[in-house]
Design a protein around this nucleic acid. Structure first.
Lengths: 119, 119
DNA sequence: TGAACAATTGAATAATTATTCAATTTTTCA
DNA sequence: TGAAAAATTGAATAATTATTCAATTGTTCA
């Protein structure tokens, strides 16, 4: 991502309105946290992983065969989701089972499904 | 994105469970629609645009000064959001005002904010 | 009409990121 | 102990995408 040069010469159409919204805007930190979560859901593989895990706790290999994606690719994406604390692992012997670890993900998925049904 | 080669040799840990989840999985079309929406929310600039528009109807220039991002960059992102029917334009003379055009976006933003507050 | 402003657009560039491949870690069990 | 299985990891590659820059479209109004 590149930064803008145009920003120094700020001109408004409706300065009052802009200032008002400016006060209501999200903090940078919140923007990061929120967009990271949406970014996680905004990828085919990760969305399918999360959706599958909303139905069943699954191990890496089963996710791999379910989504027809390599073990390694699944594992990389699981790490992304783990770092965001959206899923959690449970080790049982050699096998690592994953499940959802965030109350909001399920709500988001449901809204997503509703959105898809209506369009 | 690349496709996997590993997929031909499918092995299961728990075939029954995989088959069950397979039946419950989303259709490819739905996965696309849903992840497109989340992808839209998963970018700093677009997330801020949508959040700002949830507070006020705004024109391109005001979004540009509010987010300190070039007119052109904003316009490109607005097109993405327009194509997904997440925002809608309203022309008044030379100025184009944008507002939210999807009932789900607001719900998603609210869950996002809640998520950020809890982490 | 034509100058000025708002916004859009296409192409190019700069960044980001998903997947692959090879190597490694962790655990089981023969 | 050591071979085998499951998963993770790092580096490289392949794709995708956000922003910039320059040119253009659409609209107003003097």
């Amino acid at each position: 991502m590149k930064k803008n040069a145009e920003a120094c010469e700020i001109t408004y159409v409706d300065e009052k309105k802009v200032k008002k919204v400016q006060r209501e805007m999200l903090r940078e930190k919140a923007v990061e946290t929120i967009s990271d979560m949406f970014k996680a859901l905004g990828d085919y593989t990760r969305l399918k992983i999360l959706y599958a895990l909303s139905k069943e706790e699954l191990c890496v290999r089963d996710l791999s065969s379910l989504l027809e994606t390599s073990i390694s690719a699944i594992s990389h994406q699981l790490r992304v989701l783990r770092n965001l604390r959206l899923v959690k692992p449970r080790r049982q012997g050699k096998v690592v089972y994953y499940s959802l670890d965030d109350d909001h993900v399920l709500s988001l998925l449901q809204i997503g499904v509703k959105h898809a049904e209506e369009s």
